[in-house]
Design a protein around this nucleic acid. Structure first.
Lengths: 353, 353
DNA sequence: CTGTTAGCGCGTTCAA
DNA sequence: TTGAACGCGCTAACAG
């Protein structure tokens, strides 16, 4: 219930000036070790904590890093947040978390918060729709780290995600299993990452001369519900796909659920591949084969990217573009295409039991 | 790239004193509307944002609310965080999020952050292990809202969760379906909420004279993995349970996955009930019957609890103990016990196909 | 209704 | 190596 302890009281009790206390706290090397110990003891005893607001005010910046995500409710993001926060704690940075949604005001509010708080740098991991935010922030002189930004510039570092790498593996895996009618359930196409994923799928299919069936490309919104609905539609087609590629794991989970409702068993009747590799994926029934986009890797890269921007001495500051690969993780949600020639024997066999 | 705009420059440009600018920003009603408009225009034009650090410094507290959770990686929490953050944005509060894990240092770091930032009040939604934090925080005169705190006191409001209500429904539901060998997979017993859940299960079983089989009560740690392992063990028993009650949904998801691996089908061979009702529960296959503990409700209550603590005029300040009920949500992961008398006909029938 | 002034708690000159 | 003094940007008295 006591009032807050200030640096003055510590100074008085330790019989030194506030300046010396300040130096001790900030580990300025020129303080007499004996004095320093005495001061520390007093600080300890009084339970003194420096006031972050005052420090930030005088310094002109707080030891705070912004982290902007979308859809904290999608398990992909909490994983990122967690490792980002852990790194923050380790390096003595506070994290100002903000999530922006479809509401246009939210981006303004977010920018405001970041700015008002004098954060030094912010990571924008929304995977789309970040352009205006980047502009606002960099204009105000704060460093930004973003995913798939068009091109880096001063104050803007970016991480380029190689979607094709993993998606190619997925497409070819499906092709190898004899699938010819492959559906793709995309994300919202205003979302850059979703557009890029879809594009990569199309490219990879062309590469191996797989026919692109427009009716098999449907867009969702990266939610379970979207996957559920999309499959309901795809499944009613006279010539339904034997495999479904999804723009993210949540969609795939919806697909699996819908398949269950429809009496389609995975992978015998329908092969499913997700994207992201959220932790949950491995615990689905059956375990979901998916294209991994490492969440911890993203968190790590963006964190160290921010640190670099803040402290040019860290050497890496020249580095503007980081990159990360995606990779297929094989689990048990895919199988030979039903009716596929390669599958004849197996089919005949299984039909007999 | 321009330097930060301050209140002084706004004052100069608008040809008024800084005090008037300040009043305008803070909507003090006594400012001349004409002046106010002129000032706002300048603010707009210059893109001025007040410096939160400076405001917090002079006011003695920032418009910030602390939110402490554990395991942000468990989908239960992001849901809470989201609605808490939304309420924060609506009411013009910033949220300082912190998650504490098993590392004992993390609680100290967290307390420090809250204190250094001069947050006005903090919600501790860790569901256990919060006692030391509560002490530290209230000692330093900051209001706290916690779950299942032993007893409220000045500066400590609490939300009492009625675990029994929903758990009784679950237990009786299972009993009504003819289950007699009911297993319970608990959470880590140092976690208060886990202990309470287990206790409630035992009580409710006693109430209806169900025998408590100690070998069917195993403890996990609220992760999918724990559920998976627990069922692997339970399933190998010579006389295995026909139903499993889980201390949370993640555990139940693990159980479902293990059941699949073991070739047990849910609910025919094994009934499963979860706890929490995370959003994912309804999308499991089959959809998981579970005891709902509303995440949005928790977020809402704790948020308004904090607001009350901060502003006694809000009337509700006398209220120290909030409460919330749990309720069974019936979905499709439970069925009549195999071999149960009530089930004879159905069993005979299904055996014939 | 508006301007002047005095700090909020701290880091950082500049002398000593 | 240490201390005195100034000011970061803002709000809250107090005059006017």
């Amino acid at each position: 219930m006591r009032k807050r302890v200030t640096i003055h009281e510590i100074a008085q009790l330790a019989k030194v000036s506030t300046a010396t206390v300040s130096r001790t706290i900030n580990r300025v090397p020129t303080v007499d070790p004996v004095l320093a110990r005495r001061i520390r003891k007093v600080i300890e005893k009084e339970g003194y904590y420096p006031n972050t607001n005052a420090r930030a005010l005088v310094r002109g910046h707080s030891r705070t890093l912004g982290l902007i995500v979308s859809e904290i409710t999608n398990p992909f993001f909490p994983e990122i947040i967690q490792t980002f926060a852990k790194l923050g704690a380790q390096n003595n940075y506070e994290i100002l978390l903000s999530s922006i949604d479809h509401d246009p005001r939210s981006i303004e509010i977010t920018a405001r918060q970041m700015f008002e708080r004098s954060v030094g740098a912010v990571a924008i991991l929304t995977f789309g729709g970040e352009a205006p935010l980047i502009d606002i922030l960099t204009t105000r002189n704060i460093a930004v780290f973003a995913v798939d930004a068009d091109r880096p510039r001063p104050l803007l570092k970016t991480i380029q995600i190689d979607y094709e790498h993993g998606i190619r593996q997925a497409v070819q895996h499906l092709a190898a299993l004899g699938h010819e009618r492959i559906a793709f359930i995309g994300g919202p196409q205003q979302l850059k990452t979703a557009a890029m994923r879809k594009f990569a799928v199309q490219q990879c299919m062309k590469e191996i001369d797989l026919e692109l069936l427009p009716e098999l490309f449907v867009d969702g919104d990266h939610t379970i519900d979207a996957g559920l609905k999309a499959l309901s539609i795809l499944a009613t087609m006279r010539d339904r796909p034997s495999a479904v590629l999804c723009s993210n794991d949540m969609t795939a989970i919806g697909v699996m659920r819908a398949a269950f409702d429809l009496g389609l068993s995975i992978p015998q009747d329908l092969s499913v591949i997700g994207f992201d590799d959220i932790r949950l994926a491995q615990f689905m029934t059956p375990p979901l084969t998916t294209v991994q986009l490492s969440q911890t890797e993203i968190a790590r890269l963006s964190f160290s990217g921010l640190l670099d921007s803040l402290d040019p001495r860290r050497g890496g500051s020249i580095r503007q573009v980081y990159s990360i690969k995606t990779n297929l993780v094989l689990r048990h949600s895919t199988a030979l295409a039903p009716g596929c020639i390669k599958n004849r024997a197996a089919t005949a066999f299984s039909e007999s039991d």
